[in-house]
Write a protein that binds this DNA or RNA. Structure first.
Lengths: 365, 365
DNA sequence: TTGTACGCGTTATCAA
DNA sequence: TTGATAACGCGTACAA
C-alpha cells in the first residue's frame, strides 16, 4: 500500500485492490452530520426537504457531497416499490426503425431521472410476456411498448391490471391506453396521390403483417385512397413480416399475375425486398416499376435507386411516448389519448412515370 | 365488483381496478406450504436446494408455481448486493454498428439470467462518467464498455477499483481487463493488398479519431501495409468523429492537394462522407477514386455504388464480450485477455482499377 | 433438515 | 423541526 492522504474528504480512496470501496450509506452521512438517518433522508430528498431546518439541510448536504454519498436505488425501491425505471419493449433493436425511437425515449426520460430497461421480443408473444414479467418483477414504474399487436391479450391484460403504459408506433384496438404513432393514413394517401400524379393507374400494395396495426392501417388507407381515385384497390399481398425476405417473397407472388407499374410497400424493409424481387425478375426500378417505402430509415436515401419514402419522425415518436408515460406516472389521472405525429412524403429516385407501354389495340370503333 | 371464485389458487385475480394486484411474497409461499420463509427461500434457490428435503422442495415449488410467485429482485439485490444486471455503455445506439453488438450481448447474457442496462454516452466523458456512476449505484454486477478511449482515466480508475468489466470494439492502452475487438490490423492489411492488386499506388487514409483505439490501430496498420508495399504512407487525414459529416470534411481537405486514386476509410460512415465529398467535387466512385469502408454495416451493400468494406462480426463481438464478462463474474479469477475476432474483406462496386491517366511524359532517356 | 433472528439501506409514520 | 421505530422482501449465520 502506498502512502496516501487520509481519506474521508473530497475523494474516497479505493480500499485494497481489487476489492471495491464500500459506498457510504445514509447512516454514514447522518452520523457525520450529527443527525438521525431519518433527518438525513428528509434533507436529501427533494420532496421532504422543506420539513427540515435550512441549516440542517446545508450541513447534511455538505457531508453527503464530501463523502460522495449517492442514494442506493435498490434500497429505495424496496421501500417505495417504485424504481425510477421504465421498461421498453421493441421487436428488434437491429431493425433501424427502433434505435431512434429508443433514443428519443431515453433522452426524454433521462431529464426526469428515469432509466430505461430495453428488451427485444422478436415479435414472439412468449418472449414478450416473459420480458414483461421480468420487468415488472424489477419494479419498473411503467412500460413503453413498440411490439403491440392489433389484438393483443397481453396488452389488454396489463391495461386492465392498471399497469402504466404507452404504446408507440404500433397500436392495439379497443385498448384504453395512450399511444403515439405516425399518421400512417395520411402518409399512404400522399403516396398514392404522388403515384397517380405521375400517371400510374396499376398500383399494388405489399402490405405489412395485418395482425399489426401499421399493416392494417396502411392497407385500409391504401384501399381508401385508391377508391377515391377511382382505381382498383384489390392488388394487395400481405408480407409475413416486416423484413426484406418477406418483401421479396410477397412481391414475387404478386408479379406472378400481370404486373403493376407501381408498388406501395408497407415499409422500407419490404421495399428493399421488392428491389430484390424486381432485380431477380429482370425488371428495373423505376423504369419498369416505381416503388415507395415507409419510415424513411437512415441511409435509405443512399440506395440504388434512392427510395421514395414517407418520413416518420422516429425520435419524436419516442420523445412523445415518454412524455405521455411521464404524465401518467405523475399521478395526475390523464385520460388516455392517441397522438398522431405528422409525416411527409420524400420523393426520390425510385418513383417515375410509368413506362409507356403499347396497349393492345382496341377493336376499332 | 363482479363475483369471482375465491382467489389464492391458480390465478391471482386482480384487485379492484385500476390498482395493481399485489405480488405474492416469499412469506405467502411459505405460509401456504406450511414451512418457514427461510426454508422456502432455500427450496427455491438453486444453490441451497440441496439443503432441503426433496419432498419439502416439491411442495414449496408447487405452491410457488400456483401462486405465480417470482422473487423480488430488488429485495434480493439489497441483501446480496448483486443485481443480475450488467451495464452496457455505447456511444450512440443510432450508429448502426452498435445494435448488433448490443443484441449479441443481451442474447448471451439472457441465457445466464442477466439483464442489460444500456446507456448512450455520445462520446462525452462527462456523460460516460455519470452513466457509469448511475449504473454502479444500481448495483450492476459488471460493465461492457464500447466507449473506451485509447487513454481513458475513467476506465483505468474503474479497473483499479476492481470493477468487473470488459471492453468491446474499442480498447484502452495499458489496461489490464479483458477485451474483444475485430482484427482491425488484418482488415486494413487486406484492404491495402486489394487496392494494390487493382493497380493503385496513390492510396490515402481517412482515419477515424486517433484518441480511439480503432482509429489509431487502423492508421498504424495502414502505414505498415503501405510500407510493406513500398508505397508512400503519409497521405493521411484524421476525421474528428466517426460520422458522415466528419468523413466529408476530412476528404475535402485531402482532395485539396493532388488526389489519390483510392481511399481507405476508417469506417463505413466515414466512407459515406467520402462519397459525398467526391460527388461535390464532381468525381466518380469507383471510376476516379476507389473507396473502402470498415465494419460492413447493414445495408451498406445496397448503396450506390455498393461499398467494399471489411466485415466485422458485430453480433459475435457482443456475444464474446458477454462470455468474457460472465467468466469474470463467475468468481473464477481469470487473467484478462484480448480476443481478436477474424474479419473478411467484402469486395463490391466501390473499388476498381485506377483510371489510366496520361502521365506527364518523362524526359526521354 | 428446519427454524430463529437479524440485517441489507431506505423511507413512512408516529411521537416528541 | 427532529428522533425513534418499523417495515419493504429476502438470504444467511447460527441454533436446534
Amino acid at each position: 500500500m502506498t502512502a496516501r492522504p487520509p481519506a474521508g474528504y473530497g475523494y474516497v480512496s479505493a480500499a485494497s485492490l481489487p476489492s471495491v470501496a464500500p459506498r457510504p450509506t445514509l447512516r454514514d452521512v447522518a452520523t457525520q452530520a450529527g443527525v438521525h438517518p431519518a433527518t438525513a433522508s428528509r434533507a436529501l430528498n427533494e420532496a421532504t426537504r422543506s420539513l427540515v431546518r435550512p441549516a440542517t439541510v446545508a450541513r447534511v448536504r455538505e457531508v453527503a457531497a464530501a463523502l460522495g454519498y449517492q442514494v442506493n436505488p435498490i434500497a429505495r425501491s424496496l421501500k417505495t416499490s417504485r424504481s425510477e425505471t421504465v421498461g421498453v419493449l421493441v421487436p428488434d433493436l437491429t431493425n433501424p426503425l427502433f434505435p431512434p425511437i429508443v433514443r428519443g425515449i431515453e433522452d426524454a426520460l433521462a431529464d426526469s431521472g428515469y432509466t430505461v430497461l430495453t428488451a427485444n421480443t422478436d415479435n414472439d408473444p412468449a418472449r414478450t410476456s416473459s420480458n414483461f414479467a421480468a420487468m415488472q418483477a424489477r419494479q419498473v414504474d411503467g412500460f413503453i411498448v413498440a411490439t403491440a399487436l392489433l389484438d393483443d391479450p397481453l396488452m389488454h391484460d396489463a391495461a386492465e391490471r392498471g399497469v402504466p403504459m404507452v404504446l408507440v408506433n404500433r397500436l392495439t384496438e379497443h385498448l384504453d391506453v395512450s399511444a403515439v404513432s405516425a399518421d400512417d393514413a395520411t402518409g399512404i394517401e400522399r403516396t398514392v396521390a404522388h403515384l397517380v400524379e405521375l400517371g400510374h393507374r396499376d398500383i399494388a400494395h405489399v402490405a405489412g403483417p395485418l395482425r399489426v396495426s401499421t399493416g392494417a392501417v396502411r392497407l385500409r388507407a391504401f384501399r381508401a385512397a385508391m377508391q377515391s381515385h377511382g382505381l382498383r384497390d384489390d392488388r394487395v399481398v400481405e408480407a409475413e413480416a416486416y423484413s426484406e425476405a418477406a418483401g421479396r417473397t410477397a412481391l414475387l407472388r404478386l408479379l406472378d399475375g400481370n404486373r403493376p407499374t407501381a408498388i406501395v410497400a408497407g415499409n422500407d424493409l419490404l421495399a428493399l425486398g421488392c428491389y430484390d424481387a424486381l432485380a431477380e425478375t429482370g425488371l428495373s426500378c423505376p423504369d419498369d416499376v416505381s416503388i415507395v417505402g415507409f419510415n424513411d430509415m437512415p441511409f435509405i436515401n443512399r440506395l440504388q435507386p434512392p427510395l421514395t419514402s414517407v418520413r416518420v419522425p422516429q425520435y419524436d415518436l419516442g420523445v412523445e411516448a415518454a412524455r405521455l408515460l411521464l404524465d401518467r406516472l405523475s399521478g395526475r389521472t390523464v385520460t388516455p389519448r392517441v397522438v398522431l405525429l405528422p409525416v411527409r412524403l420524400v420523393v426520390r429516385g425510385s418513383t417515375a412515370p410509368p413506362p409507356t407501354v403499347k396497349r393492345p389495340a382496341r377493336a376499332a370503333g
